[in-house]
C-alpha cells in the first residue's frame, strides 16, 4: 500500500501574521516558515504505518516555489521515502479546489490507495482540501481523525473522528483519504543524521504547467486587515466578592 502525504509550507504558527498594507497581503518576506502542524501529524501517522509493515512506500507531495523544497526535505528527514515537488513559477494564489485537482492528478499517477493529510492549514484555515480531493477522485473520506486502525488485510480502516458532539467511529474501505486532528499522535523530530540522509533521498520535480490544470483564481482577496486581539483596560480584583460584584454590575451573571 502506497501512502501519499500532501504537506504545506506555512508561516510558523507561533509567529504573528503581519499585513503589508501596500500589497494587501500577509507579509511573508523574511518570515519564519514551517511545515503546517497538521501535516506533521499526517507524516507521523504514515511513518508509523510504514514501520509496522502496513505501507510499502510513503510519498510526500507539496506545491509551490523553490522554497517549498525545504518543507519536503523536512518530511524526508522525518522519514518519508521520497518526495514529489510541484513547482510553480511564482507565488500563485492556489485555492483548495486547485490544490485538490493537482493532488488528484498525482494520486492517480502513483495509484496511491491511502492519502493522509492535515485537516486544515493554519494560514488560510479553509479546512477543505481533503474533502474536495475525495470528491474529485471518489475516495472514501474520514475527516478530523484522532484514531486510525488499519484492518489486518489492509482493505479498510477504522477511524475515530473528533466531531462537535463527541467521537464518531466509522469504517472506511480503501482507497481512502483521511484528514488528521491534533490528538492522533505526537510527531517526531528529525534527527541530525536523518536530516543529512534526507539530502540524498529522491525528490522529483514536476512543473505545474505541465499538468494542464486550470489554476485561475475562483476567489480574489480584495483586502486584508489585522484584526488581532485588542488589549482591554484590565481592572484588578482581589476577592471572589469583588469579582461577583463587578460581574453583577456588568449584567453578565
Amino acid at each position: 500500500m502506497k501512502i501519499i502525504i500532501p504537506v504545506k509550507r506555512v508561516l510558523d504558527p507561533y509567529t504573528q501574521a503581519r499585513v503589508n498594507k501596500q500589497t494587501q497581503q500577509v507579509d511573508l518576506t523574511n518570515a519564519k516558515m514551517a511545515m503546517n502542524p497538521f501535516c506533521e501529524i499526517a507524516v507521523e501517522e504514515a511513518l508509523t504505518l510504514k514501520e509496522s509493515g502496513s505501507a510499502s512506500e510513503t510519498i510526500a507531495v507539496s506545491i509551490g516555489t523553490d522554497k517549498t523544497v525545504d518543507t519536503l526535505r523536512t518530511a524526508l528527514a522525518m522519514g518519508v521515502d521520497r518526495a514529489i515537488f510541484i513547482k510553480t513559477d511564482s507565488e500563485l494564489d492556489l485555492q483548495p479546489l486547485h490544490v485538490a485537482k493537482i493532488l488528484a492528478n498525482i494520486i492517480k499517477r502513483e495509484e496511491a490507495e491511502l492519502v493522509i493529510m492535515g485537516k486544515q492549514a493554519v494560514d488560510n484555515d479553509n479546512n477543505q482540501t481533503g474533502q474536495m480531493l475525495s470528491g474529485l477522485i471518489d475516495y472514501s473520506l474520514g475527516t478530523f481523525i484522532s484514531k486510525f486502525d488499519l484492518s489486518d488485510d489492509a482493505s479498510s480502516v477504522e477511524i475515530g473522528r473528533e466531531i462537535d458532539s463527541g467521537i464518531e467511529t466509522r469504517k472506511l474501505n480503501l482507497p481512502a483519504i483521511v484528514t488528521v486532528d491534533l490528538r492522533l499522535n505526537e510527531p517526531r523530530y528529525a534527527s541530525l543524521p536523518n536530516i543529512m540522509k534526507a539530502r540524498s533521498k529522491p525528490l522529483e520535480t514536476i512543473e505545474l504547467s505541465s499538468l494542464g490544470i486550470d489554476t485561475s483564481p475562483r476567489i480574489k482577496i480584495l483586502s486584508v486587515e489585522e484584526s488581532g486581539t485588542k488589549d482591554r483596560a484590565s481592572k484588578q480584583v482581589s476577592s471572589a466578592e469583588e469579582l461577583f460584584t463587578e460581574l453583577n454590575q456588568m449584567g453578565v451573571l
Binding site: Q16, N124, P217, K220, V224, G228
Partner: peptide, 15 residues
Amino acid sequence: PLYAGNVMATVETSD
C-alpha cells in the same frame, strides 16, 4: 478569517 482570525480577508468569488 485567516491565520486563526488574526487577519480578516475580504474575498470576492467568481463562482
